[in-house]
Design a protein around this nucleic acid. Structure first.
Ligand SMILES: [Zn+2]
Ligand SMILES: [Zn+2]
Ligand SMILES: [Zn+2]
Ligand SMILES: [Zn+2]
Lengths: 165, 165
DNA sequence: TGACAAATTGTTATATTATAACCTACTATG
DNA sequence: CATAGTAGGTTATAATATAACAATTTGTCA
């Protein structure tokens, strides 16, 4: 059992290191982490759980950025392309990537109780998918792996009403 | 290499057997495969590729059914709950389930060229996911596994423009 | 520097996907 | 038939996402 996003931790540290890591990466890659883009990245990380485009947009507006949807969708597209964010298709929400240095598609555990998303990088899952695809002569471009359930921390808590995530 | 949805086949047979199978299942389960529900199921199967809610709605309208969104969304919810359809979250589209007798979540290969969806039932993938979840003390409720790429048949065809599926 | 191309952002409008709320009609059962 | 439960009709609106084009900023190099 390892430390995860589900366990308590100093999240301001996660945020600031994600940002500075992103800044370095963008410099290395010769792409621009503009103010809107950085702000969106920061808002995603700060939320500590998957967050939707329009909620991010509301955050931008509060700080004087433009309030039209394309603003945030463009930033999200850039950040996802750079591997700094992942989109969770099942809930139309975005999470920060924990390891953006090596671009990849993530595997996610989504807790339907606390709404945290834990990114995995399981070689077993990757391999199993590769094998299945090979059996069908199928060439993989990308994949979506989203596992919904209850995290350890929530299982340990006294039971309460469940949302319908 | 096995026979798949990607290979040519008599699809009218797929449709009719899916429908009669669904009818039997619903009787067994004491639930009602009403005309709208059956028609939606048929439209999904007939399309021979994942199909969206509003396209289905257009199909219903042509045949004199009600034309408001709740009509089709209710039918889709019923059919998904009964395991007769699966929703592909990555593209907001629906496909018929090939084995609705034993309810399950599917694993899908989605070809971005011919837009066919092949449902898998890989024990390797299921096991790999189970192992990853167990490592984190995570209790799985459901999952979304969608693998996007190019199918064997399309790889064999002369290369042409690719959509951005 | 100043001209230009490329990238980014602003702005307006609209497309696409999905649900809420409330009412009516049908169905099964005693 | 009464009546409770299920399903469908209808209207409105919420939530998510993109198209199209104009304005601005940035990088490049003559
Ligand atoms: Zn990641
Ligand atoms: Zn949890
Ligand atoms: Zn299935
Ligand atoms: Zn194909």
């Amino acid at each position: 059992m390892q430390a995860t996003v589900f366990s308590p931790h100093d999240h301001t540290h996660c945020v600031s290191s994600a940002i500075s890591n992103a800044q370095n990466l963008c410099v290395e890659r010769g792409v621009r982490l503009t103010p809107v883009r950085q702000r969106v990245l920061e808002l995603v990380w700060r939320s500590h759980q998957p967050i939707g485009a329009y909620e991010l947009l509301a955050g931008l507006v509060k700080e004087g950025f433009n309030s039209a949807p394309p603003t945030v969708y463009r930033a999200l597209e850039f950040l996802c392309t750079q591997g700094l964010l992942h989109k969770l298709e099942g809930i139309n929400a975005y999470v920060g990537c924990c390891n953006p240095d090596t671009p990849h598609q993530g595997h996610f555990l989504l807790c339907k109780d606390c709404h945290q998303a834990q990114e995995l990088d399981s070689q077993y899952i990757s391999l199993a998918i590769k094998l299945s695809a090979d059996q069908h002569g199928f060439e993989i471009k990308r994949h979506t792996i989203e596992i919904v359930g209850i995290c350890q921390a929530c299982l340990d808590k006294p039971k309460k009403l469940e949302s319908k995530l």
